[in-house]
Design a protein around this nucleic acid. Structure first.
Length: 220
DNA sequence: CGCCAGGCCGTGT
DNA sequence: ACACGGCATGGC
């Protein structure tokens, strides 16, 4: 499935960001929000000099709310971003490297304790900002698994479903050498988003889904 | 205009 | 533990 999608879509070079901090901002902002809207918020943050740790620390909560308004949920997302900065400052000397030096499991638990960080946001930060080799699952992958019947029962939209998708992805790449796993998880997630955005709407069945034309797409 | 987006959390059973 | 609704905005 990964290889077939890669042939169809090519390298995706994800996460679309210049810095690790920008990845983290985007991971929060894109929660249930289109990337297009996130880009506007990111542009606001960049223009305000708030795309860095120092910049984000400096601006007021009120100002931050205005900057991230275009991507919605600002009453949640702005305080959540401030809470991340506070955690980094208070516990890790303001250093992403120190945060990242925790073992993956402990780091994941710490991230999940932050407000507005659930499994997907935690894993996106782990993989794309901090380079830890964890799979990232999302609603697109859930639909793909459901509609192509790759798992029984199909994953639901809750933590158990998320865990099932993560395990599914880990198993699918179990044979891949450990040092290649982060880049493959990145590429696979990016590809599922690419095909999901294009063909996998919420209600309608897949329309012209390229996976349906693949004679051999199914894992398991 | 209605649907939807790269989730998460509080509340009620 | 689980289902369910609210959260906000803008693109299409």
């Amino acid at each position: 499935m990964h290889d077939w999608l890669e042939t169809a879509y090519g390298p995706q070079h994800w996460w679309p960001a210049e810095t690790a901090f920008e990845v983290i901002l985007g991971a929060y902002l894109t929660q249930n929000t289109s990337w297009k809207a996130v880009e506007r918020s990111l542009a606001n943050l960049r223009a305000a000099g708030a795309m860095t740790l120092d910049g984000l620390r400096s601006i007021s909560l009120e100002e931050l709310r205005k900057l991230v308004q275009p991507s919605g949920f600002q009453s949640r997302k702005a305080p959540a971003l401030k809470a991340f900065v506070a955690m980094l400052d208070d516990e890790f000397d303001g250093s992403l490297a120190k945060l990242s030096s925790l073992p993956t499991d402990a780091l994941r638990r710490r991230l999940l304790n932050l407000p507005s960080v659930g499994p997907e946001t935690a894993d996106a930060i782990l993989l794309y900002a901090l380079g830890h080799p964890v799979p990232v699952a999302d609603e697109y992958l859930r639909r793909i698994i459901e509609r192509h019947e790759l798992l029984a029962p199909p994953p639901e939209r809750n933590r158990k479903g998320y865990q099932a998708m993560a395990e599914f992805t880990r198993l699918a790449f179990a044979a891949v050498p450990k040092e290649s796993r982060a880049s493959l998880f990145s590429q696979f997630h990016a590809l599922t988003v690419a095909v999901g955005k294009a063909h996998c709407r919420r209600e309608a069945r897949c329309q012209n889904c390229p996976l349906a034309a693949d004679p051999h797409p199914v894992i398991g």
